[in-house]
Amino acid sequence: MKGMSLIVKKMAQLMSGLIFVYGAYIATHGHLTPGGGFAGGALIAGAFILMILANGSGYVRLKRQEEGSSAVESAAVLMALLLATIGLAAGTMVFFNNYLPPGIPGRLISGGVIPLYNVFIGIEVAAALMTIFLALVIYKEEISK
């Protein structure tokens, strides 16, 4: 897969950072505004996909990238599961117990464990979509050889 022209590359460089920041904002403010971990993670993956589409597949060293994103994905799922399991140990014995204090609705630090879940599921969704996309790109490289 070849990259595109210089104009497209520069615009992609400018825009993908902004898209990344917007995705992180959506994921971390999931308990206050519309959005949440799923949408934020998809936006973050979209920023990476934009960079790869504009710069061509030589932009990343593909094999290692796919292994890395797969590892990040597994780690994020494991962290979310761990957070849920701590609920068993803390206070009443309920899986997915919201054990942190709820705080005042409307503040950034509120909602107990919900923001943490949102962050981890955002990382997981971003890594999963990246893994799927990179697997397709690597396949395309291998059959064109």
Partner: peptide, 17 residues
């Protein structure tokens, strides 16, 4: 529906592969 939309994308990608 929110979670189902994400699953729809993942299963679609798997069917396409």
């Amino acid at each position: 529906v929110l979670t189902a939309i994400v699953i729809a994308l993942a299963t679609n990608a798997m069917l396409l592969t």
